[in-house]
């Protein structure tokens, strides 16, 4: 019983982090219909920026969240507006090829800037743990989970209650109607991408404090985001959370009861089953109802 509880707790903690790492990918997919293959590199840029800022400012890496998110927001807007949108206008597959190419280029730029060596962010509580009801909690992973939940909640509230959120939802649901109502759709697309990039950067900080990272890891985080979105559904923080938690729990349960070599097997098996049985994910497309 204790072992199952510990495994579930570990899975939930891991899943929360997966969820945050995927939410930006999910939002772009849901609103812009773009599969952003440079998502993983945005996550890693967040991790590297957190490392730089936390060392330069001598602060806890989680405190660099606003700064990192601001930088990625500022970079994400022109990236979508002036590059991705042009590719989208040319062809349906153009955006995939473009984001893939950008990911490759940025990976090499990062190697040039930071070297290919692994880096890690080590906050003061990196090695702390605590026990509750006989279960061991890794403090750094729990803090990462809390940060993930807070950020996902913030994004959910932004989308639901703010003027920007309303415009994003309106554009995602009925692009033509939104345009007829005077919404500047290209601007909203770019803003959506910028918000997603900012959340990818935030995920990078959270990932950076729990895992060593290097520029070569970018594909892993794009792939994980893809799986989470297929499992949970497109376009909403709730879908990303459900998909992430499911992925985390499946990973740890598989590792514990089938074998540590098999989480990827069950992960992709689940992916295939979902694509066959419920291709829109557990929560479906957040914007599909009114399309």
């Amino acid at each position: 019983m204790h072992l199952i509880a510990q495994t579930l707790v570990d899975g939930l903690v891991l899943g929360g982090i997966y969820a945050l790492s995927a939410v930006g990918f999910s939002l772009i997919f849901g609103v812009l219909h773009v599969i952003n293959l440079s998502h993983g590199i945005l996550v890693l840029i967040g991790a590297y920026l957190a490392l730089i800022f936390s060392q330069a400012l001598q602060v806890d890496p989680l405190l660099t969240l606003p700064l990192v998110m601001a930088v990625l927001f500022a970079a994400g807007y022109p990236y979508q507006r002036f590059l991705i949108q042009r590719a989208v206008n040319q062809s349906g597959l153009g955006s995939m090829l473009l984001t893939f190419g950008v990911a490759l280029m940025l990976q090499n730029v990062m190697i040039w800037l930071f070297s290919p060596d692994m880096k890690s962010i080590t906050p003061g509580y990196a090695f702390a743990s605590f026990r509750v009801a006989g279960l061991t909690f890794d403090a750094v992973r729990v803090s990462a989970l809390v940060a993930s939940l807070v950020l996902l909640s913030c994004l959910a509230m932004l989308l639901k209650f703010s003027a920007l959120g309303r415009v994003i939802r309106a554009t995602a649901q009925q692009t033509m109607a939104a345009r007829l109502c005077g919404v500047n759709v290209p601007h909203v697309y770019a803003l959506t991408f910028a918000v997603s990039a900012a959340f990818a950067g935030a995920a990078g900080i959270v990932i950076g404090i729990i895992l060593p990272f290097s520029p070569a890891d970018e594909a892993l985080w794009t792939l994980n985001a893809f799986v989470v979105v297929v499992l949970g559904g497109v376009g909403s923080p709730a879908g990303a959370l459900i998909g992430g938690l499911l992925l985390g729990i499946v990973s740890t349960l598989t590792a514990q009861y089938i074998g540590p070599a098999f989480p990827n097997v069950t992960m992709f098996l689940l992916l295939v089953i979902m694509l066959l049985v419920r291709p829109n994910g557990l929560l479906g497309n957040a914007f599909a109802a009114s399309r």
Binding site: L3, Q6, T7, D10, L14, D138, L211, D217, L220, S251, T252, A255, Q256, G259, P260, A261, F262, P263, N264
Partner: peptide
């Protein structure tokens, strides 16, 4: 045996 790129080893350490 872990996957080629593990992200969590909690169960193994347990």
């Amino acid at each position: 045996e872990l996957p080629q790129k593990p992200t969590d080893v909690s169960s193994v350490l347990g």
